[in-house]
Design a protein around this nucleic acid. Structure first.
Length: 581
DNA sequence: GCCGTTTTCGGCCCGACTGTTTTCAGTCG
């Protein structure tokens, strides 16, 4: 059993104990352990077999035993028993905003409610308000929460879908007869939120059956929706639909292009094909009106790759991230597509957390991980004191960390740790530190972490005020999950970007794998304003440094180039930019 | 359930916000 699944089980145990009313610190121990396991570097199986898992801080005797059982047997008796004592559906209820373990427990005890559907009915029949501790308002809020849940239940964060997809892709690619296997669809286009997973395989027809049945019997498959000659559809354990198609190797580029989409992009390039008297579909090009059947050896244009397809239409190659019919086809025709930022362009980053606040690794460990990636610098921006839930730093601990950074920097030749802070923007728009303290940092990231329910107008005012502080270098993650929850929020973000552009601030493309990135349309808007961007991982763990790739994905969709991204600058250039000596 | 240690058990991250209360509990970040 892999790290991610072990973490899921531990987290689930924590939640079930929460509902059971167990000691909160015991529950927290499980939730903590889930986070710790996720953040562990290296191979979990090796840690278990050597017994070193017991030496990890936060993993005591009991947890070490349970993790060992999970890793070695793939099961955990304690978990199975615990889970069996709850009706299925309780987890779904916890997903409703404002419903936590205590409310779930009350609902189960007082009204025998164990599913979201039952809960919704009870709200509509006005039965909730009568329960002690609940009221009219709570009932309304829960109903609203259920609506929201329904609306987004078919959407998955990119990182969640990617994890599931890569597990399956790895297995499929290793099967006999598989010549190529790729992820297609919105996941390949690196949409922040995707509805399903599409996987495409190139193989001879004789192998198709075996490939499809191996797919349908993969351990993460919860339910098989259909399994035919060339295609199988399943639902994975995380609830997402996953389709696998097997196509002939000669058709693969066409199928990959077709199933990558977007639909609007496909419509545009098919109309280009028609203008050239060609018909383009998922099997290939054919002369218009020829009536040729697929599989004909007389294809109008043979293509060995997607590059060939675009070239045949007189287009330069359009990277998947750009295929949204957002001007990319015209740009490809005119040969004016931007040279997009690549992961390998990144020379460093600006928003990493350490064990000083809520990170999982020390200053030294983070620096070494960054150096191992070939970077020249690493910006540490731990939380400030108002973020108490994240163990935010007060002025004393800031000084301590800065001292440590100085000492580590002396040992790292050709590499520099930059002293940053992720300072909270308080409810009134003030910053969590005085100007005197802010002045001690190399740069300052200002972020909102509280009061999300304030009106959009007030939130905008609050952020604008913070941006007027001369020590603020960068706007922290503007949106997070708010983008999902509040339609129209982006409008106010434009106001913020306008103001930030005027004062020369940097936009952060925050790439925390658990959150939505800054919307790429905003990136394009900000780019038009001439703003500089920073692709930041908000990394709490060493492995998390790599998550900068999520930010790169969003940057590419915003048509951002190397020159737009501060992280692609060399250390010397960054030092100059930040006016460091 | 974990940690640290004044080595055997007490403390464990905390404040804002909301809705329910009339002094607080639950949820969230």
């Amino acid at each position: 059993m892999d790290k991610a699944r072990v973490a899921d089980v531990l987290d689930e145990i924590g939640t079930l104990l929460d509902i059971q009313g167990e000691n909160v610190f015991k529950c927290r121990a499980y939730h903590n352990a889930a986070r710790i396991v996720t953040g562990l570097g290296g191979d979990l199986a090796a840690l278990v077999s050597s017994g070193d898992i017991r030496n990890v801080k936060g993993i005591g005797e009991a947890l070490a035993e349970k993790i060992t059982e999970l890793v070695t047997t793939g099961k955990l008796a304690y978990y199975d028993e615990l889970k069996a004592s709850f009706p299925p559906g309780v987890f779904e209820m916890m997903k409703i905003q404002g419903v936590g373990p205590k409310k779930v427990r009350l609902l189960m005890e007082k009204l025998s409610i164990t599913t979201v559907a039952q809960l919704e009915l009870a709200c509509r029949e006005d039965r909730l308000a009568a329960v002690e501790g609940f009221g009219k308002k709570t009932q309304e809020n829960i109903l609203a929460g259920i609506e929201l849940l329904k609306k987004h239940s078919s959407q998955f964060l990119y990182s969640v879908a990617e994890r599931a997809a890569l597990t399956i892709l790895g297995r499929i690619a290793a099967l006999p007869g598989v010549i190529r296997a790729e992820i297609a669809g919105s996941l390949r286009r690196k949409k922040e939120v995707v509805g399903d997973i599409d996987i495409l395989v190139a193989a001879k027809k004789t192998h198709a059956k075996k490939i499809l049945s191996a797919f349908a019997s993969h351990e993460s498959v919860q339910r098989v929706l259909g399994e035919g000659e060339t295609k199988a559809s399943v639902v994975l354990d995380i609830g997402i639909n996953c389709d696998l198609r097997v196509v002939d190797p000669s058709e693969f580029p066409f199928a990959l292009n077709y199933f990558t989409g977007s639909k609007d992009h496909n419509v545009r390039i098919r109309s280009l094909a028609r203008a050239a008297d060609l018909s383009l579909n998922e099997y290939g090009f054919s002369p218009l009106g020829s009536g040729e059947k697929r599989g004909s050896s007389k294809r109008a244009v043979a293509c060995a790759s997607e590059e060939d397809i675009y070239a045949a239409l007189g287009l330069s190659y359009v990277p998947p991230e750009l295929r949204e019919d957002a001007g990319e086809v015209d740009a490809a025709l005119a040969r004016t597509l931007p040279v997009l930022v690549e992961e390998r362009d990144i020379r460093g980053t600006f928003h990493c957390h350490t064990t000083y606040s809520d990170g999982a690794n020390t200053v030294t460990e983070m620096a070494e991980a960054a150096r191992a990636l070939g970077w020249e610098y690493l910006g540490l921006a731990d939380h400030s004191k108002a973020a108490a839930y994240a163990n935010g730093l007060d002025e004393t601990r800031v000084r301590k960390q800065q001292k440590e950074i100085d000492s580590v920097n002396q040992k790292l030749a050709g590499f520099r740790i930059l002293k940053g802070i992720e300072v909270d923007i308080l409810a009134n728009g003030d910053l969590d530190f005085s100007d005197a303290t802010l002045a001690t940092f190399d740069y300052v990231v200002a972020s909102v972490h509280s009061g999300f329910k304030m009106s959009e107008a007030d939130m905008t005012k609050r952020i604008l005020k913070a941006l007027r502080n001369k020590y603020v270098t960068m706007i922290g993650h503007l949106t997070g999950r708010l983008l999902l929850i509040r339609e129209g929020y982006a409008l106010r973000q434009h106001e913020i970007i306008d103001a930030a552009a005027d004062s020369g601030k940097i936009i952060e493309i925050n790439a925390h794998p658990q959150r939505l990135d800054l919307d790429w349309r905003l990136c394009r808007y900000a780019k038009e304003k001439g703003m500089k961007f920073a692709i930041n991982p908000d990394a709490h763990v060493t492995d998390g440094l790599l998550d900068v790739r999520y930010g790169v994905g969003t940057a590419r969709k915003g048509w951002l180039e190397k020159k737009d991204i501060l992280n692609t600058s060399t250390l010397r250039e960054v030092e100059t930019y930040l006016s460091l000596t």
